[in-house]
Amino acid sequence: MPLPSSYSPNYFSIDDILATQERTPCKFLLNVPKMGQLNPSAAERDLKAGTSLELPLWLVIEMSAGRQPIITPELPKVFRESYREILKADACAVDLHKYSLHFYEVGSYVKHFDRRGDVHEILLHTFKTRYRQLMDLADNSVSDPSVQHSLDTLEKRIFVASHSARTKLNSWLIKSGSPLEAAELVVNHKKRKRVDVDDMK
């Protein structure tokens, strides 16, 4: 069970940890002794200034901060100009899941690498355009299950939440009394057992 939000920098948030593992290209400004192993294409002991590498976000953020940055970060591919144009044209037609599993989370980190604020705008634009479609999906999810696969993690979470809210509202409108139910984890536990038994046969 992950923590509900990763927007405030939540130390324990699993989503945030997964998002900061995504790689982004960057360039070294200083020599870093003894760190040649980070660059798989060279066998030198030291990491030379000017090397370009793809490193995880958590390292890039840490190393580019402070008074004396060691690396300059660059934007990952999906946040560059050409991809931004596609999102600007029609964000709803895009398979965001393929772009990045944590599109918005990664975006809100890398937007600081872009001084002009284009990434910031495109994130907002993408979310606003896709939100309407997302709500429509959640209310009428019977239609086509495959559309769910084009959502990124945040969107999927919103989808699941709003879908269960809609189902609850519907059942309340029809019966107006809610039955006692088995706890969520108990139901899950039973389902898993059934699978295990099938495996043994």
Partner: peptide, 17 residues
């Protein structure tokens, strides 16, 4: 080959992570 301070910073970031 440059200062080890950057190496230490890099390792420290990994420790924190």
């Amino acid at each position: 080959s440059g200062s080890v301070v950057s190496t230490i910073r890099l390792r420290h970031a990994a420790v924190k992570r």
